Computed example of a mutant assay.
Amino acid sequence: MSDVGGIAGDQLRSYIERIERLEEEKATLQNDMKEVFAEAKGNGFDVKIMRQVLKLRKMEAADRSEQEELLELYKRALGMDGAPAGDPDDE
């Protein structure tokens, strides 16, 4: 195929076909992951918690630590840690 409007048709087709193959592989991998989660759930694991753990494992240690500290701070501010919530006038 020749250039059409300055676009190399063969090269474009090659890119499109490669992307289509990768999308097929991605769908297969997503299905495989779904099956692993279903297997884990069948063995009594909480899939929502597993997803949270996966997200945390992807984070840098400093980012994870900062997020955990903020979560604890917010929970304390809302009285979710067993202690009474702070007085809104304290700020």
Rank of each mutant, 00 (worst) to 15 (best):
L73W: 08
E68G: 01
L70R: 11
A8L: 02
L54I: 08
D63T: 14
K58S: 13
P88H: 05
G42T: 04
K34A: 15
L73K: 08
R64W: 05
D90F: 02
E72L: 03
G44T: 06
V47A: 03
E25T: 04
E68A: 07
A83M: 13
E66P: 02
R76A: 04
E72G: 01
L12N: 05
G44D: 07
G6K: 00
T28L: 13
G5E: 06
G86L: 01
R21S: 12
A61Q: 14
M33H: 12
E66D: 14
L56W: 11
N31A: 15
L73N: 08
A8Y: 00
Q67S: 13
E72M: 06
E66A: 13
K26H: 11
A77Q: 09
D90I: 04
Q30H: 14
Q67T: 14
D63K: 12
K41H: 07
K75H: 00
V4K: 07
M33S: 13
E24P: 01
P88K: 03
E72P: 00
D32E: 15
E23D: 10
E60L: 13
K75M: 06
P84L: 08
Q30S: 15
E35Y: 14
G5P: 00
E68W: 00
E17A: 11
S2K: 08
G44Y: 04
G82P: 01
M80P: 00
A40W: 06
S65C: 09
R18A: 10
D3Q: 07
E68I: 05
D3Y: 05
R13Q: 13
E23F: 04
I19W: 03
D63V: 09
Y74M: 13
L73D: 10
S2M: 08
K75C: 01
M80I: 04
I49Y: 13
K75A: 04
Q52C: 06
P88Y: 01
S65P: 04
D90M: 02
M80L: 10
E23Y: 05
D81Q: 00
P88M: 05
G9F: 13
I16A: 14
Q11K: 04
G42Y: 02
G86F: 01
D81E: 06
V47F: 02
